[in-house]
Amino acid sequence: MITIDPATREIIWTPEFYVMKYFAHAVQSVAVRIGLPGNWSSNAVAFLNPNGQTVIVAANSTINRILLHWNLNLSIRSSLKSKYQL
């Protein structure tokens, strides 16, 4: 997740580092994983934190912005940027 270039001693933060950073920030250690059915279930994961907060982490591997609609006893609308957009 973090590598160091032996020649330059430069620290390189890999994409996996940032994925773990987002998970660690939002998902509490005793959270329960919630199953997600549907087309995006292989690109998303959801957790229920002990404080009742629902956390959804999703990845968009397409070149287009995608609008997702989640229904977990509440309505959540979100827009995921393409992995190619900053």
Rank of each mutant, 00 (worst) to 15 (best):
M1K: 12
M1H: 13
I2D: 09
I2A: 06
I2Y: 10
T3K: 14
T3E: 14
D5S: 11
T8N: 07
R9P: 01
R9C: 00
E10P: 04
I12F: 08
I12T: 13
W13I: 15
W13M: 13
T14R: 13
P15H: 07
P15N: 10
P15I: 06
F17M: 10
F17L: 14
F17E: 08
F17Y: 15
Y18W: 15
Y18G: 01
Y18Q: 07
V19F: 09
V19S: 05
M20G: 00
K21R: 14
A24F: 08
H25A: 09
H25K: 14
A26R: 06
A26H: 14
Q28P: 02
Q28C: 02
Q28G: 07
V30E: 15
V30K: 12
A31R: 01
V32A: 10
R33N: 06
G35D: 15
L36A: 04
L36F: 07
G38H: 00
G38R: 03
N39H: 08
W40E: 12
S41C: 07
S42I: 07
N43Y: 10
A44I: 02
A46L: 04
F47V: 03
F47A: 05
F47W: 15
F47H: 13
F47M: 04
N49H: 04
N49M: 07
N49W: 02
N49V: 01
P50S: 07
P50L: 07
N51I: 02
G52Q: 00
Q53I: 01
Q53A: 08
Q53H: 02
T54A: 00
I56E: 06
I56D: 05
V57D: 00
V57P: 01
A58W: 03
A58T: 10
A58E: 14
A59W: 09
N60K: 08
N60T: 02
S61P: 07
I63L: 11
I63Y: 05
I63Q: 10
R65A: 12
R65S: 13
I66G: 01
L67E: 14
L68G: 00
L68E: 08
H69K: 12
H69W: 04
N71G: 02
N71L: 02
L72F: 12
N73K: 08
L74F: 11
S75Q: 11
I76V: 14
R77A: 07
S78H: 05
S79E: 13
L80T: 00
L80G: 10
K81Y: 07
S82L: 04
S82P: 06
Q85S: 15
Q85A: 15
L86E: 13
L86T: 11
